Simulated assay, not measured.
Amino acid sequence: MFLKGIAMMCGIKKRLTTHLARHTFATTITLSNGVPIEAVSKMLSHKNLRTPQNYAKL
């Protein structure tokens, strides 16, 4: 609900979801700023290191 309100206030037409927010955090905020993939994995509570490697490919 909060993401939908933020999108409306900002004029964003794309549907914002928690999954999209997590993905953006993993790619834009952490990995692109040099945070080690192991740390990103822990922050996102991934049990398998392969999961955040999908983000790293972007």
Rank of each mutant, 00 (worst) to 15 (best):
F25Y: 14
N33I: 03
V40A: 06
I29C: 11
T51P: 15
A7F: 08
N48H: 15
P52M: 00
C10H: 08
R22V: 12
K57H: 14
S32C: 13
H23F: 13
K4Y: 08
A39N: 06
L20M: 05
M9A: 09
T28A: 11
G5M: 06
E38D: 15
K13D: 06
N54P: 00
G34D: 10
V35A: 12
A56T: 11
G34C: 10
I6M: 08
S45D: 05
C10K: 15
N54R: 09
H19Q: 10
L44D: 07
Q53P: 15
K57Q: 15
G11N: 04
V40S: 04
S45V: 01
S41V: 02
H46M: 14
P36G: 06
A39Q: 07
M43V: 14
R22G: 09
C10A: 12
P36D: 05
M1C: 09
I37E: 04
I37D: 04
F2T: 08
I6N: 04
F25T: 06
L16V: 05
K42C: 06
I6V: 14
N48A: 10
L3A: 02
I37W: 06
P52N: 00
P36K: 00
T18L: 11
C10I: 01
M9Y: 06
T30N: 10
T17C: 12
M8V: 12
N54W: 09
T24M: 07
V35R: 11
S32Y: 07
G5A: 00
M43D: 04
A21W: 08
S45G: 07
T17P: 09
H23Q: 13
T17D: 04
T18M: 03
R15C: 11
T17S: 15
L44H: 06
L31M: 15
K47I: 03
M1E: 13
G34A: 03
S45L: 12
